[in-house]
Structure formats: C-alpha cells, structure tokens
C-alpha cells in the first residue's frame, strides 16, 4: 500500500520534471514503461546507424575518386560512431550492449527499414547521403530536445556530425547532375528510387502510429511523424530544382494557404512489406551483421582472456 503511494508520488515528480522541460537522468526514478520505451527507441536508433553502414560501406572499395573514397570512409565511420554514442546512451538504462546486439540479431529489435533498400549505383551513395541522412537529420534535430538526458546529448553530438553527411551526398548528386548524360540518368534514377523510401523513414501517419502518442506525452518524441515529414518534403523541393532533376512526386504542389507543399500519397503497402521482411536486403543486412559478429567472437574472447592473464600475473606478483 505504502509502496503504491510512494510510486504515485515518484511518478508525479517525474511528470512534473517532464512538464518543466527538465531532463530525466539515468539515476532518476522513471516509470518502467518509459524506460522500456526509451530502450526500444534508442537501441533501434543505434542498430539503424550500425546497419546503415552497410549500403554505403558496399561502395568504400569502389568510390570513383580518391577524394570521394576518403569522404565516404569518414562518413561511414561516423555512422559507426553514432551507433557507439547511442549504444552508450542506451547502456545508461542498465542494458548491456551485448544484449541489444542479441536482440537485433534475433529479430526482436528493429532498425530503420530504409537500409533494406539496395545501394545499386554510385548515384545511390549520393541519394542516401542527401535524402536518407537528410531525413534522419530532420528527425534528430527534433530529438535534441528529447526528455532523456543521455539521448538528448547523444543527439546534439550526432547532429553536429550529420550535416557533413548530407552535404557530401548532395555534392555527389550535383556532380552527377552536371556531368555526362549517363551520370544525369544515374542521378535521376537514384532520386526516383530513394525519394519515397526517405519519406517513409518518418514512420506511419500519426493516426496509424502505435507508439507515437505516448512518446509525445513523455517528450521522448517532440514532433509528430507527419510534421517532420512535411518539413523534409518542403526543404527538398528547391534542392531537387537546383539539381535540375524531375521531382519524383508528380502531385507535388505549393499550397499557399497551408504554407506547405501538398504531396502525393505514400505507398504504405510497400512500407509494411519492407518492414515485414520483403525488402531486397532484409536478410542480407542481418546475415552480414551476424557473420561479422561471429567472426569476431574469438577476438573478443582473446581480449578477455588476455586481460584475465594480466590480472593473474599482477596478483601473483604482489
């Protein structure tokens, strides 16, 4: 009984903190559902950064100039860094990274569905940096104000690094758009294939989003899926125009009343199909992660064994 009253009081002060825009920190009391919801979102975000290394990583050995190779290597490395920052934020909730990785590999935890699309051409490397990182940035900028301190701080750090990602992607597109006829075709084709999936990155429309309402109330999420998606659509129109490419959405049209672009319907069947395992790369991405992780098991074991030996030697010497 007394426990209940105490919990209510704790919950009350938790909600007051959230209401006053104070951050929640690792040692603070928090409702179990908040912790679970955070863990789900942060670990999913971390997995996305890590799985997201694969489509572009696939071009590290083929980048068409040395400058591009260096830039792409730095970019993909950053994504690994982002994965690290986010695992690090999630670990403050008391779950070790190995557990999160096990959940990813068993399919219990998800990652962003966009990475199940294949990076088929060099143009896709441009489109991914420009559109996929671009969409991620819109989301991440908003998350800098998320209520959980370590997550918010991770986002600040990540956002600082992200803008170079989008710029290098756009620069690739620009070079292609201003290049030969074949390069132009490559750019248009990549834009066509990545535009819609990038819009889907913001998740289902608000009315259909399972986790959205609660996450908004707890200020884990700060803006709704549709608000963020609209921002991205609006900012992308002039960028496509400048490239001189055709907009993939024939219905895109400025609405002066709303002060936003109206746009065509997103193919949600495709969205759910890819989420449910029917993307080109779902199996490939997980298999790659599992293969690398297994291949590294003996190295991790060796590190642990070496550390143990050192400790024993120190103990024996004293």
């Amino acid at each position: 009984m007394q426990g209940d009253a105490n919990d209510r009081e704790l919950e009350h002060s938790f909600l007051r903190r959230i209401g006053e825009e104070q951050k929640i920190e690792p040692k603070d009391w928090m409702p179990e559902a908040y912790r679970q919801s955070l863990l789900r979102q942060i670990s999913q975000h971390a997995h996305s950064e890590v799985i997201g290394m694969q489509p572009e990583g696939n071009y590290l050995t083929r980048a068409p100039s040395l400058r591009r190779k260096a830039v792409l290597l730095a970019k993909v490395q950053d994504e690994a860094g982002h994965g690290l920052y986010l695992y690090s934020a999630a670990e403050t909730l008391g779950t070790p990274r190995s557990e999160m990785i096990a959940a990813l590999q068993s399919g219990a935890a998800k990652y962003a569905s966009i990475f199940n699309y294949p990076a088929q051409t060099w143009g896709d490397v441009g489109a991914i940096g420009w559109l996929v990182d671009g969409a991620a940035i819109v989301n991440q900028v908003s998350l800098q104000r998320t209520s959980y301190g370590p997550y918010a701080r991770g986002m600040v750090r990540i956002c600082k690094e992200e803008s170079f990602h989008q710029r290098q992607g756009y620069e690739i597109m620009l070079m292609l758009a201003q290049g030969s006829a074949a390069q132009r075709r490559m750019a248009q084709d990549s834009l066509n294939r990545f535009y819609w999936p990038a819009l889907m990155m913001f998740g289902p429309t608000d009315s259909a989003s399972a986790h959205s309402a609660r996450a908004m109330q707890w200020k884990i999420k700060r803006e709704t899926n549709d608000e963020l998606r609209q921002k991205f659509i609006d900012q992308t129109v002039p960028q496509i125009e400048f490239l001189g490419l055709q907009h993939p959405d024939p219905e895109i049209c400025w609405n002066a009343e709303r002060n936003h672009y109206d746009h065509g319907e997103i193919d949600w069947d495709e969205f759910y199909a890819v989420i449910n395992g029917n993307g080109h790369c779902n199996r490939q991405r997980l298999a790659h992660h599992i293969r690398a992780h297994r291949a590294g098991a003996w190295v991790r074991d060796a590190v642990a064994a070496h550390q143990q030996k050192l400790a024993q030697r120190t103990a024996a010497a004293t």
């Binding site: 690290l84 920052y85 190995s98 098991a297 590190v303 642990a304």
Partner: peptide, 27 residues
C-alpha cells in the same frame, strides 16, 4: 556467453584552459 569488454566513461578537454567534460562511454 558473448565476451563483453569492460565499460569505460570518457572525458575530454576540448581545449587548454577548459575542464574535462563527459562525452560518452565505450568498451
């Protein structure tokens, strides 16, 4: 069980004259 390395917290002095500041963790 998967061997898990030890968790460390990282503090960085961004330039001379400033304090070390917590930036995150690693294994």
């Amino acid at each position: 069980a998967d061997s898990q390395l030890e968790l460390f917290e990282v503090f960085i002095r961004s330039k001379r004259g400033l304090d070390h500041k917590h930036v995150g963790s690693l294994h």
